[in-house]
Design a binder for these strands. Sequence first.
DNA 1: GTCGTCAATCCGAGGA
DNA 2: TCCTCGGATTGACGAC
Length: 265
Amino acid sequence: MDACKVDMCSTGLSLALNYYGKSTDSSVGNRPRPSSGFELEISSSAAAAIEPSLTLGLPGDGRKAWSVGRVIGKQSSPTHSVMSSFPGGRPSKINGKNDEAEKVWPRISDEEEYGTSRKKLRLTKGQSALLEDKFREHGTLNPKQKQDLAQELNLRPRQVEVWFQNRRARSKLKKTEVELEFLRKCYERLTEENIRLQKELQELKSQKSSAPWYTQLHEAAPAFAMCPSCNKVTGASDGSGSGLLAAASKRHFSNPSANCAARFR
DNA sequence: GTCGTCAATCCGAGGA
DNA sequence: TCCTCGGATTGACGAC
């Protein structure tokens, strides 16, 4: 697992972007648990207004335990073999090149479904376009819609189902990539902000230590205020702590993660 | 138990 | 030859 982490000392915030690499090992004997995706972890050491820990996991939901690699040459189960869409001996090309006229809703006959070699079906542009349109309308199809669409495209319902399944998976992947890019940018912004705040804090600290004693006294004044009605000297009413640091952090840190979080809404 | 969906993976086709 | 795309398979899981 790769991870990058930044501690925002001045704010008590800690950020970690974890990447869980994709496991390709699908050995049956010692089944690993492939888990892949990105996870942004925002945690706060301060028991303050920020959520103690926020984890954004991508893309797996942890539901899947593992998957066993396919056995080459294995015939699929009866239910699946009926649905199989790699018919043996089916020519994918005519005269070495796909003929557009022939490609209009190519039909696969039943006997072609049980062949030995695995030929890849390529959907025509028209078929793909229609499938895309339907996908934009609804990400999943009910059995009736599936049947109708299959009929319209001259495909088997199973092929339509598989197409939607793959389409969902790939669009999710795409979305994950976009989110990852956003999180990276967010992370970079927060890192820069953190560096800037640290620098500013240092400057303020050095200013404070080098200032004359009466200036320091003046800056500390908010801790002791005069009540306008009773003219008595009292402690600061909001109890928000010592002037310099509190003011500085109030002025410069107004929830830096808010901008990033807002964009997820 | 059946069905639908998902994650992981395979693997043929085609382009660089 | 390598890489990417995309259609297909498989097994797990949840809902019913």
